[in-house]
Amino acid sequence: MAKVFIYPATSLILSDLVARFGHKPLGAALGIRERIQTAGVDSPPLQITPEEPKRGLKYAAVEVPSGVRGRMAIYGPLIEEAEAAIIVNDADLAFGCMGCARTNELILFTLRQSGIPILELDYPGDEEEGVRFVAAVRKFLDGLPEEVEA
């Protein structure tokens, strides 16, 4: 079972397919869950405190907006953990955790720099593309190591 970073990190489709084909999807929900389930200073709604943009300095310089650094504090560790990634390139309407284009550019760059295997594709626009989309994801995932279980 490989850890596969999904982009958009909020994607239902990618999260489902990665898990369905026996691997572990790494997405925004894991980062948010970790914060929501950790005791500390109350900072609704996401339990992201002003400390997080400071932690994000590991991934982006101080002149980068706080929202980018705060988001990178969530995604940076997940990207470091990832063994592969699937990227949907035309994810133009992913909001919230994926709502900032500058963060998204940095996530994609960091993934491409990391040297892990990456599958890049677009959302399907019809049934025929749906067939190709699923087949490509399946093939990519089949090529990843499955030490634990399929």
Binding site: P8, T10, S11, L12, I13, D16, L17, L93, A94, F95, G96, C97, M98, G99, Y123, P124, G125, D126, E127, E129, G130, V131, R132, F133, V134, A135, R138
Partner: peptide, 24 residues
Amino acid sequence: RPGYLGHEREFRLLRYISRGLEEL
């Protein structure tokens, strides 16, 4: 919440994914 709209975006595409899974 913003995530709901993101679900809305992908929900439209699920039938294509279903088709892909059937074909697989």
